[in-house]
Amino acid sequence: MMNEMIQYLSAVWELSLEAAPWLLLGLIIGGLFKSLVPQAFLQRHLTRPGMSSVIKAAVLGMPLPLCSCGVIPAAMGLRQAGASKPATSSFLVATPETGVDSISVTYAMMGPVMAIIRPVAALISAIVTGLLVLLFGDDQTQTVASRSDNNCCAADEKPNDIKPAQSWFEKARSGVWYALTDLYQSILKWLIVGILLAALIEAFVPHDWLIQWGDSWVVMILMLFVGIPMYVCATGSTPIAASFLMAGISPGAVLVFLLAGPATNMATLGVIRDHMGSRTMWLYLAGIISCALLLGLLVNVFFSGTQISISTEHAHNILPGWVEVLSVLVLLLLALLPFWPSKQPTTTGCCGSKES
Rank of each mutant, 00 (worst) to 15 (best):
P251S: 07
M220Q: 04
K171T: 10
F136D: 07
A145S: 13
L123M: 14
F225P: 00
V144K: 05
T129S: 12
K163C: 09
L258I: 07
I116D: 06
T129R: 10
S186W: 02
L135V: 08
R118P: 02
K158W: 06
A165K: 10
E202W: 10
A122R: 03
I162S: 11
I195M: 14
A179F: 04
I228V: 14
L210C: 09
P206G: 03
K171V: 12
V232G: 07
N151T: 10
P251C: 10
E157N: 12
T235C: 08
D156Y: 07
W177R: 15
P119F: 05
M230I: 11
A241P: 03
G194F: 01
F244A: 07
V219H: 00
I221Y: 02
L245C: 03
F244H: 03
D138E: 15
C233G: 13
F257K: 03
L222I: 04
G214E: 00
Q185G: 09
V254F: 01
V193M: 12
F225A: 00
R147V: 10
L255D: 05
A234V: 09
I211H: 02
F204N: 12
L132M: 10
G137R: 01
W209N: 06
S186I: 04
S250A: 13
N151Y: 15
P229A: 03
A126F: 05
G227Y: 00
N151H: 15
S216P: 08
R173F: 12
L135S: 12
W209M: 12
S146P: 08
W217T: 02
P119G: 06
A203H: 07
S174H: 12
Q140T: 14
I116N: 06
Y184S: 05
H207E: 14
V219L: 01
I240L: 14
G214R: 00
Y178D: 14
S167E: 11
A234S: 15
F257E: 05
N150T: 14
L245H: 03
A242Y: 05
A247Y: 04
G194D: 07
A253T: 01
D208R: 03
I117W: 02
I228S: 01
L134G: 04
I211Q: 04
A155S: 11
D161V: 14
A198K: 10
I127C: 07
T141Q: 14
A234M: 12
A121V: 06
M223N: 01
V226N: 01
V176Q: 04
M223A: 11
P239I: 06
W168P: 01
L197P: 01
A121W: 07
V176C: 02
H207T: 15
D161Y: 03
K171G: 04
D208F: 00
F169T: 13
A199E: 13
V144E: 08
G137V: 02
T238P: 09
K189D: 12
M246Q: 14
V219N: 00
A122E: 05
P206F: 02
A115F: 05
